[in-house]
């Protein structure tokens, strides 16, 4: 075959391929037309969402029932829309906690960054997404509305058992700690 012919043929094949490429999608979409839709008829039907889906936010408690949140401000710093605000305070027993804690769900985008930032596993997103409100102010949640009485997805963790501060137990009594150093010992 002459080289020109080869070229021409290749060209023709290409054109055919392109034409088919243009048409094949039509077949695909047409096929879809006769496939059963996957739509779920909310609110009559409801899907059970996985535990890690990102909906309404809660503040959980440690195994001993105390508030986990230590008002470290990491969640509010991580929040890309700045919808978390709080004030840190010291409880009578010396524990650091949030005297008030507010999430403006009107602004929250449920990105979950707060949960990722939280070092005490206090703030967690739940699968609950059904909490729209008629007025926007009702979407501003205060601490009593956020605080739950369980540990959420991580029921066993207790930050204060691992930290070195004495809010729960004396120095040396936390997980993986030695007895406090005796400064006045004279031995080398």
């Amino acid at each position: 075959m002459l080289p020109e012919m080869v070229k021409l043929r290749r060209k023709g094949e290409e054109l055919l391929e392109d034409g088919l490429g243009l048409l094949r999608p039509f077949a695909t979409t047409l096929g879809m037309l006769f496939t059963r839709p996957i739509t779920v008829q909310y609110p009559e039907e409801k899907r059970v969402l996985p535990a890690r889906s990102r909906g309404r936010i809660i503040l959980t408690r440690s195994p001993d029932g105390d508030e986990r949140c230590v008002a470290c401000f990491l969640c509010s710093a991580a929040c890309p829309v700045s919808c978390i605000s709080m004030e840190a305070a010291t409880r009578e027993d010396g524990r650091r906690y949030a005297s008030w804690f507010r999430i403006n769900f009107g602004r929250c985008i449920f990105c979950g960054l707060c949960e990722e930032a939280c070092p005490t596993l206090a703030i967690q997103l739940t699968p609950d997404y059904e909490f729209s409100k008629a007025t926007i102010m009702e979407l501003v949640y205060e601490k009593p509305a956020l605080l739950v009485d369980h540990g959420g997805k991580d029921p066993d963790y207790d930050f204060y058992r691992h930290a070195g501060v004495t809010e729960k137990g004396e120095k040396g009594s936390h997980v993986n700690e030695q007895e406090p150093v005796d400064v006045k010992r004279l031995l080398p």
């Binding site: 979409t29 037309l33 839709p37 739509t39």
Partner: peptide, 10 residues
């Protein structure tokens, strides 16, 4: 309606 069906919606 058609677009929805093309996209497996209702």
């Amino acid at each position: 309606k058609l677009l929805a069906r093309f996209q497996l919606r209702l």
